[in-house]
Design a protein around this nucleic acid. Structure first.
Lengths: 249, 249
DNA sequence: CGGATTCTGTTCGCTGGCGTACCTTCTGCG
DNA sequence: CGCAGAAGGTACGCCAGCGAACAGAATCCG
């Protein structure tokens, strides 16, 4: 698509969960981490299929989607460098009824699920490990994101949801640019492509974003924040509260 | 309201999570359990307020709601005798941005959060306790319920959602009757009361339910199952998969 | 260079659910 | 008994979003 400048490989600790671990725990995990590029549209997992790895994104974003029988879809939650893909591995169950799709290309470090499970178990309980409670708190934050997605789907307009979606994505990216067609956004939000076109058109007319063939520049973030529904802030605050170790942008 | 016949106090093990514990673990917990009646409309917790207890419903149903700034609300998930209210206590964070409201009166056993936390920690990790992984798997099932609520809110009609809601409630109750006004259902689903009136009217006309001033008799459960969207089945199966210890009705 | 494809923009009629307003029917209670 | 309040039913205009169809514009690729 475009010429990707050869950047140095990302540091695992760009992932906030990995960054929050004390040295000894991180050291034990880090030798097991494997850098993988995540290409746009790639499916990390499919519903009902057992995962072999968990993924810690550094500069990619992964969407959790539910795909209905008739092919329509809806985003359940989004995971970037603040989180981990594959919570079913340590929470139990091994699978989820959702798809995980790369929504914004980049990288993640992955590790074998079994190893994470071991580490998760090892430091569970009274021994005051960091990883175990950290992952549980992250799961709570994810839960809140899902809950708020449900609320937003029920009560808010496409315009508001688009703002929420853009802001959630921005928070997980290093720059103010997204690579993302309206078609894909529509799939995520579970609305028609035309609906996104119109909503994005309004944002563009208001000077908040610049849209051009799959490339979005966010020009006025405060402007987006002024238009977004309360859902965004609820989720953001909950992440901040539950994962304070995490550096703010 | 009506004459409540004096029934024997419910057994804690009517709650499926408590029922799934082996004798020794159950014995340790059971001495700490306190029976509390849950009255219709009672708020078990409010957003942001730290819980002192967790609740194991036996024959009551509790709804997790998000209440918006403008007063509108939407149900996020529902907890009955298959689950526990207050996951934030063991998952971490202590609070959630939601309300928990008694949707169907009954009873629950509650215990001090601190004690549950102790037991949760004690049996975490490698020691192969039952409570810890059990609660994590329950949390996964709850997560799926929230995810599916989001999907359902996005894509399905009020009619379908009402069916889903009735079936989810039925699964958590001993009988085929619910005590529930259309107004309250509307609050849960996040729709207008009139919308529920119409949807319920259609179900009644089809002979599936009988509705009368806050009392619903489900006459034809298979009929409801034929009308419900896929969301119900996804959630039900996921609960069954994740919590197989639990006796089926 | 030129055709094919992808992405975006626009239109039109339709419908589900909303907001509002009002009415009837039960039920509980003084 | 009779009234107040709660619960349920109905109607009307309105609008956001849907489905379908199509048109320009940018980009890719042979």
């Amino acid at each position: 698509m475009s010429i990707m400048p050869k950047l140095p490989p990302p540091n695992p600790r760009q992932n906030h969960l990995l960054a929050a671990l004390p040295e000894d725990e991180y050291a034990r995990l880090s030798v097991e981490l494997e850098l993988v590029p995540l290409q746009l549209g790639m499916a990390i997992y499919e519903p009902g299929v057992e995962l072999n790895h968990v993924y810690f994104p550094t500069d990619a974003i992964v969407s959790l989607l539910y795909v209905m029988e008739n092919g329509a879809s809806a985003e359940i939650a989004v995971v970037g460098n603040e989180g981990i893909v594959g919570i079913a591995l340590f929470m139990g169950g091994g699978t989820m009824p959702n798809r995980a799709v790369v929504q914004s290309a980049g990288h993640a470090y992955r590790m074998k699920g079994k190893l994470l499970k071991l580490e998760f178990a090892r430091f569970g309980g009274r021994r005051h490990g960091t990883l175990h409670p950290l992952l549980l708190r992250y799961t709570m934050a994810l839960l809140t994101q899902m809950a708020q997605t449900a609320v937003c789907n029920r009560h808010h307009t496409v315009d508001q949801q688009l703002c929420r979606w853009l802001l959630l994505s921005l928070d997980r990216l290093p720059s103010n640019e997204l690579q993302m067609t309206q078609e894909l956004i529509a799939n995520m939000l579970g609305v028609r492509r035309e609906g996104v076109t119109e909503a994005a058109g309004r944002l563009q007319k208001a000077g908040l974003i610049h849209y051009s063939r799959g490339h979005i520049d966010v020009l006025d973030r405060p402007g987006l924040e002024a238009r977004v529904c309360e859902c965004y802030e609820v989720v953001r605050q909950e992440f901040e509260r539950l994962l304070p170790e995490v550096p703010k942008k």
